[in-house]
Design a protein around this nucleic acid. Structure first.
Lengths: 144, 144
DNA sequence: GCTTGCCTTCGAGTAGTCCTAAGGTGGTAA
DNA sequence: TTACCACCTTAGGACTACTCGAAGGCAAGC
């Protein structure tokens, strides 16, 4: 199967701009062109791109991805470095998920608070002020 | 309690550059200055900043955060809009956590694969090629 | 008095994405 | 044949949210 840039963009849920950017920066080395110079993507390219999207969205900079892809093409002797890179990315992603889950708790409190305000004091209750203290239903509390 | 910009940066695990950026862009409206023009952060400022960091790290653009903070200062009649904003952010964050968990699976497969390669064929096994097909232990497979 | 270390402002640099402009190609249809 | 649509191309600029460097102020310690 082969695909146009637009089909690939839809499949991967990213923009055509990003795909061109990755291609122009050497991250999709197997993409071919048709007679009209249009990019033609094969399944192999989709796999590469899927990995690129995965690494980008877990926060790996383009430069590191380029390095990783170069290692893949270099051969089996680069496996130790690739292993370390993926382990680092794994740890990084776990951290990020953890951070997001903590942030989610803060947001949940806000949602609950506003839901309560909307149900209980429908503009008829005493509201002391609108300085930020009025928002302190989830007072920031951290380490120590 | 009051804090220097550096103490706040450490507490929030962000750079002093970012804090100045948020302050310069009106997102920390209660930060005071000492006799030497240095920023002085109180606990109230930490709460605001904590929320800013939370919203930023869950992907809300600075412009939206500015709008949200303006709504907070505007008073109780903006609660419905704030409620909608926080619900949207909640949904967005759940999506992002989900995406990250899927990406993590891909990365886990890579880690496992490389671990296997390192244990079993310690450079003495038959390696067919180093074209990307050699990497296809987690072939990209998606919708349909 | 000099160094160290923190703070300040201002302006420039960066990554990655997004968008516009200007143009080419292929298909359909009046 | 001409018009139009929908897609593709490139080059280059705009944008966001930082990130950093330069140049300088102030206070403490030797």
């Amino acid at each position: 199967m082969s695909y146009t840039i637009q089909e690939v963009a839809k499949k991967m849920a990213i923009s055509t701009y990003s795909i061109r950017y990755y291609h122009d920066h050497g991250m999709l080395p197997f993409v071919k062109r048709d007679a009209n110079n249009n990019r033609v993507f094969e399944d192999t390219d989709l796999e590469w791109l899927h990995l690129i999207v995965c690494l980008r969205q877990t926060g790996m900079p383009v430069e590191r991805i380029q390095h990783y892809l170069a290692l893949v093409q270099e051969g089996e002797n680069t496996v130790p470095e690739r292993y370390e890179m993926m382990k680092a990315q794994q740890a990084r992603t776990l951290d990020e998920i953890n951070d997001l889950q903590n942030h989610l708790k803060t947001i949940n409190l806000k949602v609950d608070h506003y839901a309560n305000v909307l149900i209980h004091h429908k503009s008829d209750s005493f509201v002391p002020s609108n300085i930020p203290e009025a928002e302190e239903h989830d007072v920031y509390q951290e380490n120590q």
